[in-house]
Design a protein around this nucleic acid. Structure first.
Lengths: 198, 198
DNA sequence: GTCTATAGCTTGATAGAC
DNA sequence: GTCTATCAAGCTATAGAC
């Protein structure tokens, strides 16, 4: 059973992903979630900004869980990276390029104009970075190397979403994913050499 | 001497970069450019969408020229890549994280909701890709390899803008730039080996 | 070409019945 | 908690004087 609150978050997440923060009106969110405006203000007394903050937090965490599930069901980190990029490309194609990063559009919109929401996006990206970094370390990489590679992987995924959505074509995401797989392979090899020397 | 039209484009470019398309009202653009609303509709009879299309085209081309100038004044492609990422990070810090990619925010906003503007962003990214790819080929890379690396470099730069603006910290851009330099070095080495074998 | 006034609509937010 | 009616303010766009 889905609560009214859940429907509101889900609807605003979908709209934020598709058109961003400013273009998503509360009336549209109300209509899409089949919840009256009053309920919206009941659950989020702080209005649009509070709703957005909560949506960013929850959809960011949900996306992290999704990617972790894909990554963790792979036999090794290289396969995990490949599966994540291939999954992102497949999802783009399957949803007519609507289903991408749940927070990137809003993050760019608010970065210079709404510091409270900017901080929420920063915290979400930091959490993704920790999660990705920890998984690369499990693959044998040194912590600082894992962190740098994780930063590159997330940036590349975001850049891939941007280029592929603009082009309505996943060629960019496909090529970026292939290079990220190579990069991860090289880091794993390097880690193995280090381990042998120890 | 700057024309009214130029001032309008410049003002809307700055606002689009900072807050995106939907949050930038024509009144704000009018005020920032010190041009009355009437002039706005005189130069762009198609209204906000036409102004946005022209702004994306011109600011996208200007940014391409800027990056080309940095890249072309470097002694080799590896240094060129390094200079571009370091320049992007320095500009972010110098402008309090406002001056980043002139089209990315709008590109994400309109990707699923305004096909005319989406096509303009796609064409701009395609032009950047051609420009970057041609320069990597000059460094000796095979065309298909150059194209893939160019795609990764642009995506990484965009991802770096996103993460660094959200964090108000260029650590992400710095680390991403360093990895892109390594990646370019490897591609140059590979190209040199290929050339020797020929 | 420049500028002002305003129409017509949509927005975020609130009040109050139920 | 749910829902509707409504407000003030903002928006894009247009008309028309100069």
């Amino acid at each position: 059973m889905t609560t009214t609150r859940e429907r509101i978050i889900k609807a605003s997440s979908a709209l934020f992903m598709e058109r961003g923060y400013s273009a998503s009106g509360l009336k549209q969110i109300s209509a899409a979630s089949e919840a009256p405006i009053g309920s919206l203000y009941h659950f989020f007394p702080g209005g649009k900004e509070e709703l957005a903050a909560e949506t960013l937090r929850e959809s960011g965490a949900a996306y992290q869980s999704l990617v972790e599930a894909i990554f963790d069901s792979a036999p090794d980190v290289v396969t995990g990276v490949r599966d994540c990029f291939e999954g992102a490309a497949a999802t783009l194609r399957a949803t007519d390029y609507a289903d991408a990063c749940p927070i990137a559009t809003v993050a760019l919109e608010v970065a210079s104009s709404d510091d409270a929401l900017r901080a929420v996006t920063a915290a979400t990206f930091a959490s993704w970075l920790d999660s990705c970094s920890a998984r690369l370390e499990r693959g044998g990489m040194e912590p600082s190397r894992a962190r740098t590679l994780a930063t590159v992987l997330i940036a590349a995924l975001e850049g891939g979403f941007l280029l592929s959505r603009a082009a309505k074509d996943t060629t960019a995401m496909d090529e970026i994913g292939a290079v990220m797989v190579e990069l991860t392979e090289a880091a794993v090899r390097e880690a193995a050499v280090r381990a042998r020397q120890r």
